[in-house]
């Protein structure tokens, strides 16, 4: 029992130290990673050009006209 407890204590300490050492290594790796490539590819998000309302409505009207024309042609051909 005593022996088991001291073994568990050793595992606890080595385990905790290993977790910390490993994650600190990862921290270092991340810092290196950032230094080499981190800032290069930071490009601004492509902003969508604001579409004015008038333009929008005009586009809509064109679309409706195109659809109406298509429907007419279809009906004429299939009568």
């Amino acid at each position: 029992m005593q022996q088991q407890l001291s073994e568990a204590l050793t595992i606890m300490l080595t385990g905790m130290i290993t977790v910390f050492v490993f994650l600190i290594l990862l921290l270092v790796a991340m810092a290196l990673l950032r230094r080499f490539i981190g800032t290069e590819d930071r490009q601004p998000e492509p902003s969508t050009r604001p579409v004015s309302r008038a333009q929008n409505q005009q586009q809509n009207a064109q679309r409706v006209a195109a659809i109406t024309a298509a429907v007419h042609t279809y009906r004429r051909e299939h009568e």
Binding site: I11, L23, I24, M30, A31
Partner: peptide
């Protein structure tokens, strides 16, 4: 990246419980 240390610290729950499970054998 510093928050990695928090993820490490919280693992103490695991290792303390290992000790606790063995202590429960008493």
């Amino acid at each position: 990246p510093r928050t990695l240390l928090l993820g490490a610290a919280a693992q103490f729950g695991i290792f303390a419980t290992l000790f606790g499970a063995i202590a429960l054998n008493g």
